[in-house]
């Protein structure tokens, strides 16, 4: 049985990754799970300089999920290179670094710094964070802007580039095609869905940012649909995510067309989710006598 999957020429031991922003750089969860067992660790978004993020409250619970408006707080690329990369290098897992920025130049600066580090397998470009006013999401909601930033990043990147797509658009396939046309090596989707929660007793927004990105099991059907539509529209591989809690959920995404999957909010609910999904996928493959995981990618009929 072979659980390997390949994206843009990079082979992963299994298709299970962590969704950016839910797993730090792996340090906190390494107390709970053996990072060697993961296909990849996708790190929290990092910018060219430290970002303080949004005021609190930054998180809220909603039915079957949560809202977050962290605002991409991060220590900046210098600290990340000195602390987080050496930590992750100790493990036999792939490192995918998520990059955020406010301008094209910000992104390119981080892309170039990471080009010096061969341990970084891939770059994931966050153009879809709904919680940052400038930059970020603006690149992810207009096809021409997405095309432009993808092309600029590709010009400077030494590693394969994943563009992370926002679900907060009219037609995700239009965005996917724009990224592909600009040279993206892969796509990841979905980022969080913009939501809102109001405290009716205080008559106030629960989040200081008013809106936040919704994640968790409640968004899964939307995510599966978008992965399927995108897989029909483009040739490049897809990393699927959105509310995955179990191996069954992960397999749905793979059948819909994802070459790999990421676990996000469910890390907060069950810190062992990632490795449980790895084990569960193996069980599914045994049960249905699937020799190679790749047979399952897009196999829905």
């Amino acid at each position: 049985m072979n659980t390997q999957t390949t994206i843009a020429g990079i082979t992963f031991k299994n298709p299970v990754m962590t969704a950016s922003g839910t797993f730090g750089s792996g340090m906190e969860y390494s107390e709970f799970v053996d990072l060697n067992q993961l296909g990849a660790v996708v790190t929290k978004g990092v910018a060219n300089v430290p970002w303080p993020g949004n005021p609190t409250p930054r998180v809220a619970e909603v039915y079957g999920g949560m809202l977050n408006a962290i605002g991409l707080q991060n220590p900046g690329i210098d600290v990340f290179m000195e602390r987080d990369i050496p930590f992750l290098k100790q493990y036999d897992t792939r490192i995918i670094v998520n990059i955020c920025g406010k301008t094209v130049e910000d992104y390119v600066e981080v892309v170039e710094r990471l080009g010096e580090e061969p341990a970084v397998a891939m770059l994931e470009i966050n153009v879809s964070c709904p919680n940052v006013k400038e930059g970020a999401i603006a690149f992810g909601q207009k096809a021409d802007a997405l095309f432009h930033i993808t092309r600029e990043v590709k010009k400077h990147a030494r590693q394969p580039v994943i563009m992370k797509l926002s679900p907060n658009v009219t037609d995700i396939t239009e965005m996917a095609r724009a990224a592909e046309a600009a040279g993206a090596d892969a796509l990841s989707l979905i980022n969080t869905i913009t939501g809102m929660k109001i405290d009716i007793h205080k008559r106030k927004f629960v989040l200081a940012n008013k809106t936040g990105g919704m994640s968790g099991p409640a968004i899964k059907p939307v995510a599966v649909r978008m992965v399927y539509q995108t897989a029909q529209a483009v040739q490049i591989p897809i990393i699927g995510m959105g509310g995955i809690a179990t191996a069954e959920d992960a397999i749905e995404f793979i059948l819909a067309g994802a070459s790999a999957v990421s676990i996000g909010a469910m890390n907060f609910v069950n810190p062992y989710t990632t490795v449980e999904v790895v084990r569960g996928i193996e069980e599914y493959m045994r049960q249905y006598r699937v020799e190679n995981l790749t047979e399952l990618i897009g196999a829905v009929q």
Binding site: G24, E28, T56, R58
Partner: peptide, 25 residues
């Protein structure tokens, strides 16, 4: 308000007088 409880999600922060050793903000 917290989500992960283990320091990964950065949901539950408090503003500090000096730059924090971990967050660098």
């Amino acid at each position: 308000r917290m989500a992960c409880g283990v320091g990964a999600c950065l949901g539950c922060v408090v503003k500090t007088k000096e730059v924090d050793h971990h967050s660098h903000v």
